Amino acid sequence: MAKVAFLLANGFEDSEMKNPYEAVREAGHETTIIGLEKNVECKGKTGTVYTSELAATDVKATDFDAVIIPGGGAPEALRVNDDIVRFVREVNAQSKLIAGICHGPQVMISANVLDGKQATCYIGIRDDVKLAGADFKDEEVVVSENIITSRTPKDEPAFIREILVKLS
């Protein structure tokens, strides 16, 4: 059983949180929602609400086996938080799974973990991913060492499949 962190803030893409979160839990893994603060409601773009269980200041990479970053507007708020960036950087340094869909790779960009990797993302941040040193691929899911990325909600089945493969 893996311990999986979900990074969340207001404005996340509802299905990109809900579907991977439920799939990871159903597969028997332990999930923790990490936000900018502890015990704060995070509201999705279409009204789904999750409550953060831990604040970014309280987490260490050694406590988790994987990190998943849903897209939408949340990654923009997460990427400017030094503790979130530190956490993702530390997870990467330990070669643990980091998965981001849609705008999720924005957090990876700020943590400087995409250089030399292959990645995909929402088309609007494609140039940012390239400038971060990644080889951009316009594919439903890209697995590059410990990094998994996908583009949009329609790619969720492939995104979830690859996450569950890495966690098994």
Rank of each mutant, 00 (worst) to 15 (best):
M1K: 12
M1E: 06
M1V: 14
K3A: 04
K3Y: 01
V4R: 04
F6A: 01
L8W: 00
A9H: 00
A9D: 02
A9G: 01
G11L: 11
F12G: 00
F12Y: 14
S15N: 04
S15T: 09
M17R: 03
K18M: 09
K18W: 02
Y21L: 15
Y21S: 05
V24Y: 09
V24C: 12
V24H: 06
V24P: 10
V24D: 09
R25S: 14
R25C: 10
E26A: 15
A27Q: 05
A27P: 07
G28N: 05
H29R: 12
I33E: 03
I34K: 02
G35I: 11
L36G: 02
E37C: 04
V40L: 05
E41R: 06
C42W: 01
K43Y: 01
K43C: 02
T46L: 13
G47W: 05
G47N: 07
T48P: 00
T51A: 10
S52R: 01
S52E: 07
E53V: 10
E53F: 09
E53C: 07
T57L: 11
V59T: 04
V59D: 02
K60Y: 01
A61M: 12
T62K: 14
F64Y: 15
F64W: 10
F64I: 13
D65G: 10
A66E: 07
A66I: 13
V67T: 12
V67L: 09
V67A: 13
V67R: 10
I69A: 08
P70Y: 02
P70G: 03
P70M: 08
A74H: 01
P75D: 02
E76M: 13
R79M: 14
V80A: 13
N81S: 13
N81L: 08
I84R: 08
I84A: 07
I84G: 03
R89M: 08
R89H: 13
E90L: 14
V91A: 12
N92I: 11
Q94A: 15
K96M: 11
L97G: 05
G100E: 00
I101N: 00
H103W: 07
G104E: 02
P105T: 07
V107N: 03
V107K: 02
M108L: 12
I109W: 03
S110A: 15
A111S: 11
V113G: 04
G116K: 08
G116N: 08
Q118N: 10
C121T: 14
C121R: 02
Y122P: 09
Y122G: 06
R126E: 08
D127A: 14
D127R: 15
D128T: 03
D128I: 04
D128V: 09
K130D: 05
L131W: 00
L131R: 14
A132G: 01
G133V: 09
G133C: 07
A134M: 08
A134F: 03
A134W: 04
F136V: 10
F136K: 02
D138A: 15
E139I: 11
E139T: 14
E139M: 15
E140V: 15
V141A: 14
V142F: 04
V143Y: 13
V143E: 14
S144M: 05
E145A: 15
E145N: 15
S150R: 09
S150F: 03
T152F: 12
K154W: 08
D155Y: 07
E156N: 11
P157F: 03
P157G: 06
I160T: 02
E162L: 09
L164N: 01
V165R: 15
V165W: 01
K166M: 12
K166H: 11
L167I: 05
L167T: 02
S168N: 11
